[in-house]
């Protein structure tokens, strides 16, 4: 078998969790891990969508405690490594210790793209446990290439083995990705990765561009299952990579089977770029806000699109889901006041 040109990390069981409101069950995990593992995927990420400890009022409660699901994933995988994601401020270093005991060997420590110094504690804990530590800079469209380099260098200095930038709002066009990846590859000693979202229909092309600029880790989710209009679909990334002559080490047909037969039947709706999804990418809004905004819009009889646009204006960052209720209440009040004035 030839060595893959980049490492594929599948996040169906983590980022995909957003799209099903964190309602994964053990049998889903077993089937998805087995499918990804058999297709040759090297790393499988699993956690609540907002990372370890994300189960909450603010982000939605998991149907099954994530550690039970993680334990199942570790049991059934044969070759693929099991990864988790943790946002400092939401999850704890103790969570890393627990999942490491279960067999998780890769820890992705995620933070807003300007706050890397918050990850020092958790990157160091991951390293002390013998895990691979990946620094994960979210909402990367909100920082310049130079700014991202500065943040990435901090993470590298804490011991991160790989640095990712995440287009959490699916807001980057290909040129944005190229400039950022290029700057990081130039400046860092460690490998670079890119996590793309499809709100502007650019997830696959951005991932390929990232590879061309030197990124050697790429993320996907089966059938694109994920926050916002969805992630970079793993099976499409594998197929397109093959057509580019980029060796992936995975079997695109096996990934297509998994997406079609296992993941799509789980999906409450297909990942399409509807108005709300497109607004996320257009206005640069955190993808995970999508479904929470839909629920708040229904509850308070206001427009989901208006909520998302206002969150963009407020420069809300990942994790501020509580502001969705705040914005919805304010919009409802404004509408009521406007009606009163008319009457």
């Amino acid at each position: 078998m030839t060595t893959p040109d980049y490492r594929l990390i599948d996040s169906t069981l983590r980022d995909g969790s957003h799209a099903i409101s964190h309602q994964y069950y053990a049998e889903d995990v077993v089937r998805i891990v087995k499918g990804l593992d058999a297709a040759g995927v090297q790393v499988i990420e699993i956690a609540h969508g907002d990372g370890l400890g994300g189960s909450s009022f603010n982000y939605g409660f998991s149907a099954v405690p994530e550690k039970e699901l993680i334990a199942r994933a570790c049991e059934v995988t044969t070759n693929a490594k099991i990864a988790c994601l943790l946002l400092p401020g939401i999850g704890l270093a103790d969570d890393l210790r627990e999942v490491n005991e279960l067999g998780v060997s890769v820890a992705r420590i995620a933070v807003h793209c300007t706050e890397a110094d918050v990850t020092e504690q958790h990157i160091k804990v991951a390293k002390s446990l013998g895990m691979e530590a990946i620094g994960f800079l979210m909402m990367a469209h909100m920082n310049s290439p130079e700014g991202l380099v500065e943040q990435a260098l901090l993470m590298q200095s804490y011991g991160a083995d790989t640095i990712y930038i995440a287009d959490s709002a699916g807001a980057m066009i290909t040129e944005d990705v190229r400039r950022r990846v290029n700057a990081l590859v130039e400046a860092l000693e460690v490998p670079v990765g890119v996590h793309a979202h499809n709100n502007l229909a650019m997830a696959v092309s951005n991932s390929i561009a990232a590879y061309q600029e030197g990124a050697r880790n790429l993320d996907g989710t089966s059938a694109g299952l994920g926050a916002g209009a969805g992630n970079c679909p793993t099976e499409i990334l594998a197929a397109v990579s093959t057509k580019y002559g980029i060796e992936t080490g995975v079997d695109p047909l096996a990934l297509m089977d998994l997406a079609e037969e296992v993941v799509r039947p789980l999906m409450p709706r297909q990942q399409v770029i509807d108005r709300a999804g497109l607004i996320l990418g257009y206005a640069g809004v955190y993808g995970s806000f999508l479904l929470h905004a839909e629920r708040a819009a229904e509850r308070y009889n206001v427009s989901q699109a208006e909520i998302l646009l206002e969150l963009g204006r407020r420069q809300a960052v990942g994790g501020q889901e509580d502001m969705i209720i705040d914005v919805a209440l304010e919009l409802a009040r404004k509408h009521a006041e406007a009606e009163e004035t008319q009457a």
Binding site: G53, S56, F57, N58, G89, I90, H112, T114, E115, V118, R314, Q315, A316, V317, G318, G319, Q320, D322, M323, I325, D326
Partner: peptide, 20 residues
């Protein structure tokens, strides 16, 4: 459960707290 988020917006945002 307690959660803390840092927001770098300019001008800086007022401290916000939500209790559920």
């Amino acid at each position: 459960k307690a959660i803390i988020i840092l927001n770098p917006a300019e001008p800086p945002i007022m401290m916000r707290n939500t209790v559920f």
